[in-house]
Computed example of a mutant assay.
Amino acid sequence: MAGEFDVINKKHISRSIFKETENMYHVYCDDPDVIISDSQKETESIIDNLMERINQADILWNIAESFFQIFQYFEMRVTIPKNLLQEGKLLSLKGKGGKGLKADYVVVEAISVENNPAEPSVIRRIKMPVYSIETEGHWRRLKFGQRGKDRDGQPVDGKTWVSRSSPWRNANRRDGVVYIKDCLAIAKARVNEIYSNVNDDNEVNNLTGMGELYVLRCSLMEGEVYKVGWTSGTAKDRAKEISSATGVPMSFVVVESWRHDKPKELEVEVHAQLLPYRINNKREFFRLDFDNLRKIIIKTINRVSS
């Protein structure tokens, strides 16, 4: 498939579907200039056929439109008053990224710190604009060196705008699509944590060298919640160390671990893949079933080792 978009007026200028079969190559296009027939009945039949094919790919046109709206996805934020934050705590609002084995990861913040917001607000979802179909004109290509005019009458090289009513191009009504940014839930939980004056300290460990990436679990934690981290020692010793804290109701047990010569960088790679499942950006706990968790870890290890 291929198409031309007018991102200013949010319109499809032309759409094309290309289909290759065993002995033929089919092209379906809603550009009026490609429809050549002396018979009105034949013209109507051609239009019905090509529009049926193009409308069958409507979901693909929606996906193509969404690529133009990616910036809106990254601009979605939860707001919080600046005066609620303690000095030096701003960094804790940003998700963890870092330098991995194969790439550097930068997490785009989902929390916006405002000086005086009227009230805390959460954008839960965003509705992407749907492009309509241009029915009152189309581009016509000109020979090399020829100059035409755009829809506003301004000179343009190599093509010219043809004002022509083609209502048949908009035969299929296209509904809007709502995209939900689920990681805003993590941001909202973080904001609620700040409002509740719950302050946790970041777990800092600057050790490097041979160690292990581990998955730990405390049986009293609700649902399938796992701690995924790294240690320069062994996962078993790390579990004992964490379990000795007075705030832990029951001991952590090692679910599985992987020995690696760069466990800290490996942790960054794995955490980047587990970002949608992270419960709190300041903690290394993730909520998902272990089978999927293990698949993500194994796939990451294989990728960075290749």
Rank of each mutant, 00 (worst) to 15 (best):
I8G: 00
I8R: 13
K10F: 09
S16R: 15
I17M: 09
K19D: 12
K19Q: 12
T21A: 06
H26L: 15
D31L: 15
P32Q: 13
V34R: 12
S39R: 10
S45E: 14
N49I: 11
N49V: 08
L50C: 07
E52G: 00
E52A: 08
R53W: 01
N55P: 00
N55S: 15
Q56T: 07
D58N: 11
L60I: 12
W61V: 04
I63H: 08
E65W: 06
S66M: 11
F68Y: 15
Y73V: 11
M76I: 15
V78S: 07
I80R: 05
K82I: 09
L84A: 01
L85R: 04
G88E: 11
G88C: 02
L91P: 00
L93E: 07
G98Y: 07
G98Q: 09
D104V: 11
V106H: 09
E109K: 07
A110F: 06
S112I: 03
A118G: 13
P120W: 14
V122A: 13
I123H: 04
I126S: 13
K127T: 12
M128D: 06
P129F: 03
Y131V: 00
I133Y: 01
E136I: 10
H138R: 08
K143D: 14
R147M: 09
D152A: 04
G153R: 09
Q154V: 05
D157T: 13
G158Y: 03
S163V: 09
R164W: 13
S166H: 12
S166N: 15
P167K: 12
P167E: 13
P167L: 10
A171F: 11
R173P: 08
R173G: 07
V178Y: 03
I180M: 04
K181R: 08
L184N: 02
I186A: 05
A187R: 00
K188I: 02
V198S: 03
V198G: 04
N202E: 12
V204C: 00
N205D: 15
N205F: 01
N206F: 09
L207E: 15
L207V: 07
E212V: 03
E212L: 07
V215R: 01
C218S: 10
C218T: 02
L220F: 08
M221I: 09
G223D: 14
E224W: 00
E224G: 01
V225L: 10
Y226F: 14
V228F: 05
G229W: 07
W230L: 05
T231D: 04
S232V: 07
T234V: 05
A235H: 02
A235N: 02
K236V: 04
D237M: 14
K240C: 08
I242P: 00
T246H: 06
T246R: 14
T246V: 13
V248M: 12
M250V: 10
M250N: 13
S251L: 07
S251I: 04
V253E: 14
S257N: 10
R259V: 11
K262S: 14
P263L: 15
L266A: 06
E267Y: 10
V268H: 02
Q273A: 08
Q273H: 11
L275F: 11
P276W: 02
Y277K: 03
R278A: 04
I279D: 06
K282S: 10
K282P: 00
K282H: 05
R283E: 05
R283H: 05
E284N: 03
F285W: 08
F286I: 07
F286V: 02
D289F: 07
R294Y: 03
T300C: 10
I301P: 01
S305C: 04
S306W: 06
